[in-house]
Design a protein around this nucleic acid. Structure first.
Lengths: 90, 90
DNA sequence: TCCGTATTTCGAATAGTATCTAAATATTAC
DNA sequence: GTAATATTTAGATACTATTCGAAATACGGA
């Protein structure tokens, strides 16, 4: 199990998520957007998958990756908790 | 320059931030909360400082760390952008 | 069944991170 | 100036992450 935080800690992976925000993409389409080898992008996708930040579906011979925002809600609440100004203090 | 994402990617550092959310702490007080050496905690504090997630003030011979939420706002907007459902689609 | 396309997995190089102990620095008190 | 206290820096080691090219796998079509 990879934490969402680890998934988000790499800039390439954050770019992939931004890309997937628009619409689902195949692994090949994603790899084409970066000057990295397909193997490297595949590795990043497996990290994102392990962190449940993306969903994968197979259609014919291609794998289609899409954004999974469920885990982002948890990240969001941690950040919100940290930024929340404390009311009712003392 | 360390990115806020890198700063947030380690569980110990996130715990430190939670601790600082309550009130500022000295380096020693923070170190006491963890079963890690003071040197290790100091390292984590320097990462948080590099990511501008904490502020440091010196009072007498102690260094006082406090939470800096400014950078968290940027993290927050990235997460919000990813989770925002797309309106006006098509 | 063999081929082509899409993608992942493997093995290895390199770089970055977390952790420790010990030594160094900074501040204050005497 | 010396000592005491608080904290960081230095050096070492182990672990984890990023990246690549090459080989392996999976699926669908001829």
């Amino acid at each position: 199990m990879i934490s969402a935080w680890k998934g988000l800690s790499d800039p390439t992976r954050r770019e992939i998520l931004q890309l997937l925000k628009g619409r689902p993409h195949t692994a090949g389409e994603i790899a084409d957007q970066f000057s990295l080898s397909a193997a490297t992008v595949s590795h990043h996708l497996s990290v994102l998958k392990g962190a449940k930040l993306v969903n994968v579906d197979r259609r014919r011979q291609t794998l289609i990756y899409s954004l999974n925002t469920a885990v982002l809600q948890d990240v969001l609440s941690v950040i919100l908790a940290l930024t929340a100004s404390e009311r009712r203090k003392k």
